[in-house]
């Protein structure tokens, strides 16, 4: 009823509505095209993963596997130590993400308060490492000296804090109206309680977003395994697959080298196919879990404890 009133008041409204409808259609088409563009290569990899390697050398595979074969996937999965690597990846992703969120969010929250003493100092301390770093060798020696070599904690501790994410939290918390806190403070709560009870639930969308980024980072991270472990007991899935890919590429390059007689046929799986198989296995789990997190992007969550 309200709308009709408005329409009567504003004759342009009808034209507007039609314009809006057109707009929506255009938006829809454009978005769909963009999505196709984004998703098709991924899909192409997916079908290549299930296609026989030798056959995949010939062009023309666009919509479905031409010669179905589980070989690439099987080759990728049969590597020794896969199960424990999977466990390691999952564990580190979960623990690392949860702890990381806590550390970054707390920092972001505290620094968002203008009254925080030493606030600028903290900001500067956080920003400088974004530009300068000692490099591969000093970092390695540092990890060794801290006793983290070949230690599970090397996956968690160094990445607990990220300035980038902390700043995003900071921006989110800056927008929070102080009125929310005031009533809690009057009740005698300390900042930790406020943080846990009030602030975190409000920033759920941000938390969900950053969680996904952090989780993906942990899940895909392989260089730390390579550099900071002896690679015997605490392997991660990402590392195992990267290693598989490098091995295959190396073997391929041997086949091409002229200075030896090893230029011979490979049957079945080829370099791309194995890579693609590894990729599918490595990224599918997290790609599946992600939609569950999406729920938390839903619009506005407000703990209505204060009348606006």
């Amino acid at each position: 009823m309200m709308k009709t009133t408005a329409a009567r008041r504003n004759p342009n409204r009808i034209r507007q509505r039609r314009g809006e409808a057109v707009f929506e259609v255009i938006v829809f088409i454009v978005l769909t095209l963009i999505i196709l563009f984004l998703v098709y290569p991924f899909y192409n990899c997916l079908i290549l993963a299930f296609n026989d390697g030798q056959d995949a050398l010939n062009p023309g595979i666009y919509l479905y596997p031409r010669m179905f074969s589980m070989e690439n996937i099987l080759k990728a999965v049969q590597i020794e130590g896969m199960a424990s690597a999977a466990f390691m990846s999952v564990t580190r992703t979960i623990i690392g993400t949860v702890l990381s969120i806590l550390v970054c969010a707390m920092f972001g929250y505290a620094v968002s308060k203008p009254g925080l003493k030493l606030r600028s100092l903290y900001m500067v301390i956080a920003m400088i490492p974004m530009f300068f770093s000692g490099g591969m060798i000093p970092s390695f020696l540092n990890i060794r000296n801290l006793g983290l070599y070949d230690n599970f904690l090397v996956y968690i501790l160094p990445t607990l804090f990220s300035t980038f994410y902390a700043i995003i939290f900071l921006a989110t918390y800056r927008e929070v109206p102080p009125s929310l806190e005031e009533s809690a403070i009057l009740d005698g709560a300390n900042q930790f309680t406020i943080f846990y009870r009030i602030i975190m639930p409000i920033s759920k969308p941000t938390i969900a977003a950053i969680s996904v980024f952090t989780a993906v980072g942990h899940w895909n991270s392989w260089m730390d395994t390579m550099l900071y472990t002896g690679k015997k007991t605490i392997n991660t899935l990402a590392y195992m697959f990267s290693r598989l890919i490098f091995q295959t590429q190396y073997l391929q390059s041997l086949m091409e080298s002229s200075d030896n007689e090893i230029g011979m046929k490979l049957y079945g799986a080829t370099s791309t196919s194995i890579m693609v198989g590894a990729m599918v296995i490595a990224t599918l789990p997290i790609a599946i879990i992600y939609p569950f997190f999406q729920k938390h992007f839903a619009k506005g969550v407000m703990i209505g404890s204060i009348k606006g």
Binding site: M136, M226, L227, S242, F246, Y250
Partner: peptide, 9 residues
Amino acid sequence: TTTTGEELN
């Protein structure tokens, strides 16, 4: 793991 020599270094 790689051909770029990090680990040996």
